[in-house]
């Protein structure tokens, strides 16, 4: 299992590693801190370096969206892996992940 990380990049943050049941809990707070500390009204999380993902990973992204909205930040995801999107489609939440975050 590849431990997930979030690191700042040009438009927002870069998410890497495995977003799975065993790892997402610790990542929630880290992502929320990135959203809070960014000072931006619009933020992008680039997920190109995400490895494995399961439904807990989908839940993590939805939770980040919700917390960003509460803080008045427009959060968007970029380069979501196909596997993660398949799980999102199964639950009919793919549209939420692809939305512009506003």
């Amino acid at each position: 299992m590849v431990q997930p990380e979030i690191s700042p990049d040009q438009d927002g943050c870069r998410v890497s590693g495995d977003l799975v049941f065993a790892t997402v809990t610790q990542l929630l707070a880290v992502g929320e801190k990135c959203i809070r500390d960014s000072g931006k009204k619009s933020l992008v999380f680039d997920c190109a370096a995400v490895g494995r993902a399961d439904s807990a990973g989908v839940a993590l992204l939805l939770e980040w969206l919700d917390r960003a909205r509460q803080q008045g930040v427009c959060l968007q995801f970029r380069n979501l892996p196909d596997g993660l999107m398949s799980i999102a489609q199964l639950s009919n939440v793919d549209g939420l992940l692809l939305a512009d975050g506003s």
Partner: peptide
């Protein structure tokens, strides 16, 4: 019960 769906659509 805790349920997780993985990328191969298996249910844990």
């Amino acid at each position: 019960v805790t349920l997780v769906i993985d990328e191969r659509m298996r249910i844990e």
